[in-house]
Every structure is written in C-alpha cells, then in structure tokens.
C-alpha cells in the first residue's frame, strides 16, 4: 500500500468539505473493495476520508411505505433488520446473500452502489424497486444512477447519504452465485411496484439493466411461462472465467423465471 493521510470527520458536511478540497482523496466506507484495491496499488489516494464516524449515515427507518437505509449501514444489519424483513423481504434476502458473514459485517450499501461492480447485488434492488439515491447535494433516481462499468452518476466528491426504497407490492431476487466469491454471475430482481412490474438484471452486463420485454409480458400474465420464450441477446454481455456471454444470456431468463416463480 502507498501511504496516505487519514481523516475521520463526524458529519456529512465536514466529510464533503474535506473531500472537496482534495481531488485525489477517496471516501472509505467498510473498505471491502477499497482496501484490497490499495493493497494491489491500483489506486493511490492522497487521503482517505473515513465515513465510519458519521451517525447520520447509519440506520434503517420506515415511513409512508418507504424503507430508508443509510449509506454506511452494513449488509448484515440490512439482512437482520426486522423492518426490512417485514416490508421488503426480498431486500433482506439479497443482503443476506452478499459475500460471507465477515464481509456482510463491514461492506456497506453506499460503498456497494458507489463502486458499481458489474456483479454486485444491490444495484438490482435499487433499479428493481425504483429506489432513490440521496446524496449530499441532490437526489438521483434509480434509472439514472448506474451508468456503466464501475461508473455512476456521482460527481467527484459527491457522497451517498442514504437510499429510499418504496415498498413493492411483491418482489423476489434470484441469484446464480459464483461459488467462490458469492458475487452474482447473474442476479435478477423482479418486483411489482406501484408503477408496474420491474425486472432488473445484475451480473450479466457492464452494469445493472432492465428487461422491458419481460416487464411487459409479466404485466399481462404474471407467471414464469409468460417470459419463457423471451430470448436474451448475448451481445454486450460479460464473458469471463466464470461464464460466457451466451451462458449468462440464458441465465438471465432462468433467474427471471425463478424470481417470478418465487412470487407467483
């Protein structure tokens, strides 16, 4: 690891101010991605602004049909939350499927979506539930947040504060896990929201995307067979040592049907 300065602010405003004056600085959440990156010397930040001591970034609340989760809330706390389990069980299941217990005790919602790994689970929930990302300067809708491979709508220094998830009528997440890392080879969130059916796919492409054909078909008939014939193109899907693009294309359909079956 290269050396860096370390700053531990106690408020969102202070964190943003420390980061604003310092283009080469980086926020530190649970460090589950950032610390391995630093160890490999793939990044050389001048300073880390640790978000671990900011009370406003933590916690889960429910009001008016919306579950709001602070950016620094760890996956284990989302998985174990009675409120999340009661209102959006599919979100609790998703959080419980991330990594392993030690990773879930450190990895955070904010870090996961800011990083936008193509195989990360949370993006499927953000887009599937049509959630809203609240930053220190604005709100960003789900469909506008994820831009591409490890790329989001966040400006340099913009801080994810919390995410609000409108409670869906029903939802399920089906994930084909990489057995070694537990990341999604393909994960599909199917949700019936107040504004219709949404199908969000992670793991398959450069970043999360929706399947409009499946959404339309499921709006007419909500059953696995309604989407069975919808072919998924392998163009632009990921090929790596875990799976080819063709295999992932097939998995998208299989996982979508499994999610529908879990709900229907």
């Amino acid at each position: 690891m290269y050396s860096f300065d370390y700053i531990k602010p106690t408020s969102v405003a202070d964190a943003a101010a420390k980061r604003a004056g310092n283009d080469d600085a980086s926020y530190l959440a649970g460090g589950m991605t950032l610390i391995p990156t630093l160890k490999q010397r793939l990044a050389q930040p001048s300073a880390l602004v640790d978000l671990g001591a900011i009370p406003d970034l933590k916690g889960i609340s429910v009001a008016n049909g919306v579950v709001t989760i602070g950016a620094m809330t760890c996956h284990a706390d989302v998985a174990a939350s009675a409120d999340v389990r009661k209102h959006i069980p599919a979100l609790a299941d998703l959080a419980a499927s991330i990594g392993d217990p030690q990773v879930r005790n450190r990895g955070t919602l904010g870090g996961s979506i800011a990083n936008n790994d193509p195989s990360a689970d949370y993006p499927a929930a953000i887009v599937g539930f049509n959630a809203t990302v609240h930053t220190n300067t604005r709100t960003i809708t789900a469909d506008d947040f994820f831009k591409g491979l490890f790329e989001t709508a966040l400006e340099p220094g913009e801080l994810v504060v919390k995410v609000s998830f409108p409670v869906p009528k029903r939802a399920a997440y089906a994930k084909f896990r990489n057995e070694a890392s537990r990341y999604a080879v393909v994960g599909v969130m199917v949700a019936e929201t107040a504004h219709g059916i949404r199908v969000a796919v992670t793991g398959a492409g450069a970043c999360v995307f929706r399947m409009p054909d499946m959404e339309a078909a499921l709006s007419k008939t909500f059953a696995p067979d309604a989407i069975k014939a919808i072919a998924v193109s392998a163009d632009n899907l990921n090929t790596d040592l875990h799976a080819t693009a063709e295999y992932r294309a097939n998995l998208v359909n299989v996982m979508a049907r499994r999610a529908v079956a879990a709900i229907a």
Binding site: Y6, K8, L28, G31, M32, I35, P36, L48, D50, G52, A76, P101, Q102, V103, N105, R106
Partner: peptide
C-alpha cells in the same frame, strides 16, 4: 478473523486506524 465490537470481521481488510 477477529471480533470488532463482538462481530466477526477480516482484520486483513481493515486499517488499524478504523
């Protein structure tokens, strides 16, 4: 793996300052 405030975490993926 060690316990941080009672919860298992990987101490190779955490800074001492944290």
């Amino acid at each position: 793996t060690i316990h941080l405030n009672g919860r298992p975490v990987k101490s190779c993926t955490m800074l001492a300052v944290q």
